[in-house]
Design a protein around this nucleic acid. Structure first.
Lengths: 230, 230
DNA sequence: CAGTGGTCTAGACCACTGG
DNA sequence: CAGTGGTCTAGACCACTGG
């Protein structure tokens, strides 16, 4: 015998999968669900709680419960500001700005950023250090539309990631993780010729693709931890 | 005025951060928390619910609530069966079994697997191929308690991951992703001396740690995709 | 204003674990 | 067996939203 809140959860999931409730559409209220399934409101709430924490539903006090807009494709990688991550380990963060300017993207980058081929985009290149040891080489391209003042920022005060999170709040991201041999620029910037863990990350705000970042981590000094519960 | 369950949540988080409650240690029961904070059990539960879904606590019916063993450093990675993943790309999967036998783990592996130092564990070593090109070297150690018939399986029919999912359903996992240079065994098995993406993955079933797997992917042939929504 | 979700109570019965 | 977490009830009052 299945728990009642699971029955409700299945029902809601089913409605969404069948397309009866579409993204951003309002679903039944907690009271309606409680009446429909003859349970207490707390039980109906529990089903919704669970779907909210899975990112399937979104609640809004006074308004109702809605089907979430953007569906996660598959796997999840949390995005943390590297300065915070280093600080949370009790270590000292320092940054070094290598380059900040406007560039014309090549075809493939323009496509990745979803901008016209001949229009300028912003570019920044930094090295992030933990206790003075380089742990990340960050090569990033930004769609100017979402961060027009990007070139005027001081990225020693605030990482590009932190700044972009403020002006164009993240709604979505995707990642590719690879092992690569670093090229000469990266070897000298990181002061290591170890194989690198390369993360290619695209970030979205509500209105489009904000930036594409190539993040290189010396394989001997950086680990990308993960944890997952089913 | 803060909600009462948040006060309890702060208290628990604080205890853990101060090291008063250590990983895998039992925390106060729901009833004890309810009494201590003069709230109903449902409210104490809500605080714990929230910390469980964040991966900070783990509950076990009949036993209690415990501080999670491995703290998620940051990110989440979905676990897919490599044979399915290859098939889903429309490519041909083939496996090669290099070694399947019982071994005595060293201290560090015994600790990772949560078994006594001198007790045998199972070991398997395979190479996975996509259209006859090696894409993963899988070096895996298994707690025999959860898969006693492991050594009798034919891993050409069914990957270790698929078999374990059946006999000891996954409830949890953690990952470390690194870039490394492959050693000689791996170079010859993968037929490539490219830097490797190494994933160290531990998997749990309800009753404990099932296996520790070291997965090596040639950096030029494998990508670990990810996608995320906020 | 009526309706929504957010929090909370003081009970209840259950399944599960260890001793 | 006593203790644990898992589910559930039938109420309550609150803050917030729109009309």
């Amino acid at each position: 015998m299945q728990a009642r809140y699971l029955t409700i959860k299945d029902f809601v999931t089913d409605q969404i999968e069948r397309g009866i409730w579409e993204p951003s559409e309002k679903i039944y209220s907690e009271n309606e669900l409680a009446v429909k399934f003859s349970v207490s409101r707390m039980t109906a709430r529990k089903a919704i709680d669970s779907l909210c924490s899975e990112g399937v539903l979104v609640r809004s006090q006074g308004l109702g419960t809605f089907v979430a807009d953007l569906r996660p494709m598959s796997s999840l990688l949390e995005i943390r500001n590297i300065a915070d991550e280093i600080a949370s380990r009790g270590h000292q963060y320092s940054g070094q700005v290598i380059d900040v300017r406007s560039v014309i993207p090549d075809k493939s980058l323009a496509r990745l950023l979803d901008v016209p081929v001949d229009s300028a985009v912003y570019h920044s290149c930094l090295v992030h250090r933990e206790n003075d040891i380089a742990v990340q080489y960050e090569d990033r391209y930004i769609n100017p539309k979402f961060a027009p003042d990007y070139l005027q920022q001081n990225f020693l005060d605030q990482t590009p990631n932190a700044y972009l999170s403020k002006v164009a709040p993240l709604t979505e991201a995707d990642h590719v993780v690879e092992a690569v041999l670093p090229d000469d620029n990266i070897v000298s910037a990181l002061n290591s010729n170890f194989p690198c863990l390369k993360i290619t990350r695209r970030t979205w705000c509500k209105r489009g693709i904000v930036s594409v970042a190539y993040l290189y981590h010396p394989g001997d000094k950086y680990r990308l931890g993960g944890h997952l519960t089913f």
